[in-house]
């Protein structure tokens, strides 16, 4: 693995991200909604923590997935991904390089939700760990979808229902706890369960287990699809 290639792609992606208005808007939308709902809705049922948990879970399901999906689909469609492969940039190097910039941006925004929720220091650390894992999983799903599809519009049309499901099921279960058990397989549901009670170590470790397994499986799928894309028929 070449650290050079990773650094080069990371640098390129950071510059590109700041000029990509379509993606930048996604990073600001959920924090804005969270702040708005937190300070405008004054009922006992909906505390600061409620909205912070709700929007941070939805944010993890939506933004990293659509960002990576959009970045990779665009690179594939424009031919820049083929150009990088010709320079012998490996799939892992590309994912780490391009993904790091998205990960850092997503994590910064997640931290803002943490401040809104008002966690203690130890809770905040656990929160960051869970959010990081969730961001990575969403990024991998977005990348896999982009690698599988032929162009950007196809990638978006597949990614949109998936990210809606991933983000909205935990939200629905927050409002209707009776159906929570049906969404237990989803990593966002596990994250939401853990965020709802960060002092519960069992829930935290269950969440870590499921998210870690999900990451390993998805990384394997991504590498296979990247290599398959490398050699055309």
């Amino acid at each position: 693995m070449s650290i050079n290639s990773i650094k080069a792609i990371f640098k390129k992606q950071c510059k590109d991200l700041w000029k990509n208005k379509a993606i930048l808007i996604q990073f600001t939308l959920f924090p804005f909604l969270c702040l708005m709902m937190t300070f405008l809705i004054k009922t006992e049922q909906f505390t600061h923590m409620f909205f912070a948990n709700l929007f941070s879970t939805m944010y993890i399901g939506m933004t990293p997935l659509s960002s990576m999906n959009s970045i990779i689909a665009e690179e594939k469609e424009s031919g820049t991904l083929s150009m990088l492969r010709m320079l012998r940039v490996k799939s892992v190097e590309y994912f780490i390089g391009a993904g790091s910039s998205v990960f850092l941006m997503c994590l910064l925004v997640s931290i803002s939700f943490g401040f809104v929720a008002g966690y203690s220091f130890s809770q905040f650390i656990m929160y960051i760990v869970i959010e990081s894992l969730g961001i990575i999983i969403s990024m991998i799903i977005g990348s896999v979808i982009a690698m599988f599809t032929k162009n950007q519009s196809a990638a978006t049309s597949i990614a949109t229902p998936i990210r809606m499901m991933i983000s909205f099921f935990p939200m629905i279960s927050m409002l209707n706890p009776d159906i929570k058990c049906y969404f237990g397989f989803l990593y966002t549901q596990q994250i939401n369960n853990s965020l709802a009670d960060l002092s519960n170590n069992e829930k935290f470790f269950d969440c870590l287990k499921i998210t870690s397994i999900t990451i390993v499986v998805l990384v394997g799928v991504f590498i296979l699809l990247y290599k398959k894309n490398n050699k055309q028929e």
Binding site: A8, K11, K12, D16, S78, L87
Partner: peptide, 19 residues
Amino acid sequence: YSLYDRLSCFDNLLLITDI
């Protein structure tokens, strides 16, 4: 094998020199 549209000429070539 296209270019990165949002980046400048310099940044497009900088990627290659860095790699």
